[in-house]
């Protein structure tokens, strides 16, 4: 894992570095806690949902080396599942999100099953093709309400107690979901299973020769990534109180790739910054005369040319980053 690895630096120095890293973490948490006092909560919630989505995507490309071009299916699919569950079945928000997560995981199992046998561009093409099939399913199916989408989704009461209809409550609920999601990713990456994933990425042939059925490990990572993308999508459906076709399009799959690349593949926190940048750009450009796609395109180009490792990746690899004990390996 690239984040928070202890270095070989001498004791005192690395102790200082560690306290600085912990300081960063606490400052980040504090900023998230007070952010709604300064910024528009719906904007922040959107940002958190996309940040979690990008982190889920990064779990696959950054830690397994698989480039999926179909992650919108899990994100947008879960949004539909959650919206349907809370609106039609009158489930509480946490159960509604659970339905979204399980639905996305199941979808991930099916798409992953067909895709993981292939590598590189073929893997990307199969995930794209299957995600497009899911898009057409959503377009045709009854419960998704076609072009209109599922509207007027009630946010309900968390655990039947906390009213989520106020944006402050909803913000902290979303923040909690986001942090839980990150914690799950962190644990997954730093676990015995994560160790095997890492070894597969390092030398797949050798992992096979040690008796590992690499396909199952890759499928496991794929399903986990899909489930977490679903967590983000389901939460987003509650935030905006609707689920539409936009979230299952291939453009959405492309956008999450963009966010992850911008922030830094294979760093736990990079995609959060990448998502932040893209969502912010979209937010402010939406009201200006600039065409959003062209500007994000230019920013993307500039970043790829200037920061090959992504924003956070470059920071980790810089002298300062390394002195603080961050490590960037690709």
């Amino acid at each position: 894992m690239a984040d928070m690895v202890e270095t070989t630096a001498s004791g005192e120095r690395s102790a200082t570095a560690q306290s600085i890293r912990i300081g960063f973490l606490l400052a980040g948490l504090a900023a998230l806690a007070v952010a709604p006092l300064f910024l528009y909560p719906v904007f922040l919630m959107k940002l958190l949902c996309f940040a979690l989505f990008a982190c889920a995507f990064n779990l696959l490309i950054g830690y397994t080396g698989l480039l999926s071009f179909g992650h919108a299916a899990f994100f947008g699919g879960a949004a539909y599942f959650t919206a349907h569950a809370v609106k039609e079945w009158h489930l509480t928000p946490e159960l509604g999100i659970l339905v979204g997560v399980l639905g996305a995981a199941l979808l991930g199992l099916v798409i992953g099953f067909f895709a993981i046998r292939r590598q590189g561009i073929y893997f990307a093409m199969i995930t794209l093709a299957l995600a497009q099939m899911f898009y057409f399913f959503c377009l045709q199916a009854e419960f998704t309400k076609g072009e209109d989408g599922i509207q007027g989704v009630p946010r309900g009461h968390f655990l039947g107690l906390l009213d989520l209809s106020t944006s402050t409550n909803m913000y902290y609920f979303t923040l909690a979901v986001f942090l839980v999601g990150l914690l799950v990713i962190w644990r997954f990456v730093n676990s015995p299973f994560g160790m095997i994933l890492k070894s597969i990425r390092e030398n797949e042939q050798r992992a096979v020769s040690l008796g590992y059925s690499v396909q199952y490990y890759k499928l496991g990572a794929f399903v986990m990534s899909a489930a977490l993308a679903g967590l983000a999508g389901g939460t987003k459906a509650l935030v905006f109180q609707f689920a539409t076709l936009t979230d299952v399009t291939w453009q959405m799959s492309g956008e999450v790739i963009l966010m992850t690349l911008l922030g830094g593949i294979g760093t736990l926190i990079g995609p959060v910054f990448g998502a932040g940048l893209v969502v912010t750009l979209q937010h402010y450009l939406a009201t200006s005369d600039f065409p959003v796609t062209i500007v994000t395109g230019v920013v993307f180009m500039a970043c790829v040319l200037l920061f090959r490792r992504g924003l956070v990746g470059e920071f980790y690899a810089s002298r300062l980053g390394r002195r603080l004990g961050f490590a960037y390996r690709r």
Partner: peptide, 29 residues
């Protein structure tokens, strides 16, 4: 070898599967 793993981790990866410690994604390292 697994180049970006330590010597110890290289050997532990080989030991993980026979000792039933390869699939736990919820346990710490």
């Amino acid at each position: 070898v697994f180049p970006h793993l330590t010597v110890l981790d290289n050997v532990r990866v080989a030991l993980q599967r026979p000792n039933g410690l390869a699939t736990q994604f919820w346990r710490p390292l």
